[in-house]
């Protein structure tokens, strides 16, 4: 039996320990905010916080997640008012929106550790998160805005 905390709630899991955390979140818990984009840790759409670090939940097994605190986009802020979420709305970042939960979780993890990142640090931190619609210019602007306050 694997236990972990997801968005503050203790969860118990007794299935295949090699199951990627992403599918446990989406299919077993119904937390569909974390998206499936590649399954290989290449696109960042499934990014969640594991013990405070941004990780690709498609590349973390349930065995690896055991005993840890997981935060998904649904748990980032109870009212959806995290500074990164506010900045995303102020800049009108999304187009289709599918990658944006992963982008926001990645940016939130960056700012938690580096509250005033340089432009280069923003670019480097966000480089693992693909946006096929091409909202990058606005992502860069929004992360900067979240750091400086909106």
């Amino acid at each position: 039996m694997i236990t972990l905390r997801v968005n503050g709630q203790v969860q118990a899991y007794d299935g295949d320990p090699s199951l990627p955390l992403l599918w446990y979140l989406r299919d077993e818990l119904g937390l569909t905010g974390s998206k499936f984009g590649c399954g290989e840790g290449l696109c960042g759409a499934c990014t969640v916080h594991l013990a405070g670090n941004a990780v690709r939940s498609c590349a973390v097994s349930m065995a690896d997640a055991a005993g840890h605190e997981v935060v998904t986009i649904e748990g980032l802020d109870p009212r959806g008012d995290h500074p990164v979420q506010r900045a995303w709305r102020a800049v009108n970042v999304p187009q289709c929106g599918f990658c944006q939960a992963g982008q926001i979780m990645q940016a939130a993890a960056l700012l938690a550790k580096t509250p005033n990142p340089t432009e280069q640090q923003i670019t480097e931190a966000m480089d693992g998160n693909i946006c096929r619609c091409g909202c990058y210019q606005r992502i860069q602007t929004a992360v900067r805005a979240a750091a400086t306050g909106v």
């Binding site: 905010g33 986009i73 959806g80 979420q85 709305r89 999304p94 944006q100 939960a101």
Partner: peptide, 13 residues
């Protein structure tokens, strides 16, 4: 703003 903007930023879309 886009109608779905809030839901997209909160994982509800």
């Amino acid at each position: 703003p886009a109608v779905d903007l809030f839901n997209i930023t909160t994982g509800r879309a």
